[in-house]
Nucleic acid binder design. Structure first.
Length: 737
DNA sequence: GAGCACTGC
């Protein structure tokens, strides 16, 4: 292996002026002396780019690679590019990166930047991380789900001698200055190394336009517009960055900025979105990338940029030249609600640490100001200190399966930096049991070992494996791919264009018989792939080409994994007795029997998972309006807006799920909690077997359908849940009217 | 007759 010249490294004057440079010797010593180290420093301290280079220079690569994790793909790629330039080596050689679909490493790679998800995959194949001498977890304060899991796994780091390791693995945890004591405490009171940052002061101001009682979104859209215009008229030069929660609000705010500017006698030009001296630019994730690019170009001389953005501008994208922040104080957050068994997207106040993060975006190149539209009372009473970490508000099914496959059987007492609620873990275990990924004692089954290989939600993997057993994976692979990319349907803003798109989408639905949204996805996938010019085809049919293209890559990846697994001797093989038109739907049932609903009054459906929630078919479904013809359905996901909607729907027959549904009630939380704790006694096992036998007997006497209905109807808890959802609906309706 | 923040494998 070739080392970069020492002179080359020190000649780099830019990196010598970074705050971290003068601490390099002490840092290297600290890593040498400790197995765990917390390194803290604000953005701009140089820790992400410099520390791996210092360790490389100090000879840490003699016994293995240095791995650096990032929560986001772009960060992993750009930092690796930067470091390879600084070290004057080709990207992919000594310095490389690995993200999904893009492995830019070789056998020479010694400093490897990667996403936290990739590192987790790597641990699945090499649990002692034999190839690494040091692992650096970066951006730990962001508390991404995968980083949190890595923290817990690396805490019990492989020490000297375990599975081929010559030396114990060094673990460095890098975080912004928040909660470093907690991190150090978690890692056995390891030392904390603080590097001064290089950010400029940001003055924080409270505009007192919103208080704890303001819950209405139109109030804060008006407020941010007012503040942004005030900044434009009163403050010195520098761009403005406004934080709102979503696309529709952002568009509304941009329109209001024009209108208000006009009413106070500004000239403006709608096409350029320019009010006199103010260039107004919306920014959100689903925006076409070419439109996003415009945002990074500096405004013309004498013009001030005003970017109205979602949280995407808080971490994922950096806009240079921003000196003023206008903070609405809200964010849209996906929370798993285990009480109703749904994931619900909610608008909630941001945390104080998130507000500081937003303010920090104004101080990257010069001193700045942050205007908070809310008052001090809102700050004190409505905003929590820290954001609830993802691991405590997300569905854990995939993560728990990964942990189980890594040999962590006691998933309740695993070392979590912040422990998820027990019922979230039990929910996940229950789902895994229902999908046959774990057995009654909580051990991973051979099916579970196969399932963990797929980057898909377990239900979808279950359906895919079923289809492969029956030999119809060519139909299921595209469906699985299409369901794991962002929304593929374009919905234009202009009403006449909207109609045009709708007609096109209805035609696409017709090609699959207009009564199965899953089949419609397959149809679109295949039609586009078969067309001469797929991107033109997408455009003509109002389909997002970017999303469809990524569905093609996902399908290829899934197909490769499946091919590999099919070579195993124990890969299941089954024969199908039934008509071909039913084959795909029956396979889907094996992944979606937790998402079964039966039509109840009028156009409503009642979920059969034991929660008995009332749901409606979403208007975007090809089954919308055909409710009267339907009886049993399965659905891919749930959306709570003015009503509880199910999207991506498919009609099924009760016969196809009747043998699966009892599995939903076969195991209770008490059973699982002891499974989870590895405290299943023989007595408990015997009791369960007895119960199961009794249940089987019942089934032969009583029709399973009736029983399930009864279970759903009689439970008062279920009714309470329905009432809760109803209230939620009513609240949402008031909010929207 | 509705409208989905942001990541990641």
């Amino acid at each position: 292996m070739s080392k970069p010249e020492e002179s080359n490294w020190t000649r780099d004057t830019e990196s010598k002026h970074l705050p971290i440079y003068q601490h390099r010797h002490r840092l290297i010593e600290a890593v040498k002396e400790n197995q765990f180290l917390v390194v803290t420093g604000e953005t701009g301290s140089g820790k992400t780019t410099q520390l791996p280079q210092y360790l490389y220079q100090a000879g840490f690569c003699r016994n293995g690679k240095i791995g650096v994790t990032q929560p986001r793909r772009v960060a992993a790629i750009t930092v690796a590019q930067r470091v390879s330039q600084e070290m004057a080596v080709g990207l992919g050689h000594q310095v490389g990166y690995q993200v999904r679909f893009d492995d830019c490493t070789t056998k020479d790679t010694l400093i490897k930047y990667m996403t936290d998800g990739c590192m987790l995959r790597e641990i699945l194949t090499d649990s002692s991380l034999e190839q690494y001498s040091v692992v650096i977890l970066d951006e730990v304060h962001e508390r991404s789900l995968n980083t949190d899991i890595l923290l817990g796994l690396l805490k019990k780091t492989p020490s000297r001698g375990t599975r081929g390791r010559k030396l114990p693995l060094k673990v460095v945890v890098m975080s912004a200055t928040l909660e470093t004591d907690k991190l150090s405490g978690f890692l056995g009171d390891c030392p904390v190394f603080t590097i001064p940052g290089r950010i400029y002061p940001v003055k924080e101001l409270y505009c007192n336009l919103i208080g704890p009682k303001d819950k209405d979104s139109s109030a804060y859209v008006k407020a941010v517009v007012k503040v942004a215009l005030d900044v434009h008229t009163n403050e010195a030069s520098g761009d403005i960055l406004v934080f709102l929660t979503g696309q529709s609000e952002i568009e509304k705010a941009c329109d209001m900025l024009f209108a208000k500017a006009e009413s106070i006698d500004y000239r403006y030009d709608v096409d350029d979105r320019t009010v006199e001296g103010l260039l107004i630019l919306p920014l959100y994730g689903s925006m076409p990338t070419d439109q996003q690019k415009q945002i990074f170009q500096p405004a013309p001389a004498g013009v001030r940029k005003c970017v109205v953005a979602t949280n995407i501008a808080a971490t994922s994208l950096t806009i240079n030249g921003v000196r003023y922040i206008v903070d609405s104080g809200f964010v849209k957050q996906l929370n798993h609600n285990s009480r109703v068994g749904l994931d619900i997207l909610d608008v909630v106040p941001i945390s104080k640490s998130e507000a500081q993060q937003r303010a920090g975006r104004a101080g990257r190149t010069s001193p700045g100001k942050c205007f908070r539209i809310y008052n001090k009372e809102f700050w004190e009473n409505c905003m929590p200190e820290y954001t609830v970490p993802e691991i405590q508000r997300t569905s854990l099914t995939s993560v728990i399966l990964t942990l189980k496959c890594l040999g962590v059987h006691d998933v309740i007492r695993f070392s979590y930096l912040d422990r998820p609620e027990e019922r979230f873990i039990l929910d996940a275990l229950k789902k895994l049991y229902q999908f046959d990924a774990i057995d009654r004692k909580g051990n991973v089954t051979s099916l579970g070992r196969m399932m963990v290989e797929f980057p898909l939600p377990p239900g979808l993997t279950r359906a895919l494996l079923k289809s492969a057993a029956l030999g119809c994976e060519d139909a299921m692979l595209p469906v699985a791919a299409m369901l794991s990319v962002e929304n593929i349907f374009i919905r234009p803003g202009l009403p006449e264009k909207q109609k045009e798109a709708e007609i096109m989408h209805t035609e696409l639905a017709a090609c699959s018989g207009s009564c199965n949204d899953f089949l419609m996805l397959l149809c679109i996938f295949e039609k586009c792939r078969a067309s001469e010019n797929p991107s033109a085809w997408s455009k003509d049919h109002w389909i997002h080409w970017r999303a469809l293209k990524s569905a093609f890559s996902v399908e290829t990846q899934l197909r490769e994994i499946l091919l590999r697994l099919k070579q195993q001797k124990d890969f299941p093989q089954e024969t199908f007795k039934g008509s071909n038109s039913e084959l795909l739907r029956q396979c889907l049932c094996h992944g979606y029997f937790t998402h079964v609903a039966r039509r109840s009054v009028g156009k409503t459906f009642c979920t059969m998972d034991g929660h008995g929630s009332t749901v409606h078919i979403h208007p975007s479904s090809s089954l919308f309006g055909q409710e009267a013809k339907l009886d049993w359905i399965i659905f891919h996901d749930v959306l709570v807006t003015s009503r509880v909607y199910v999207r991506t729907v498919c009609p099924i027959r009760y016969d196809w799920v009747k043998d699966l549904l009892p599995k939903l009630h076969e195991i209770d939380v008490y059973d699982l909690s002891s499974v989870a704790r590895e405290e299943v006694t023989d007595e408990e096992m015997a009791r369960w077997e007895k119960k199961r036998a009794a249940q089987k007997q019942m089934e032969s006497i009583e029709d399973a359908s009736k029983k399930l209905e009864k279970r759903n109807d009689e439970s008062s808890i279920t009714e309470a849940r329905s009432r809760y959802l109803q209230r939620k609906q009513n609240r949402a309706q008031t909010k929207h009217s």
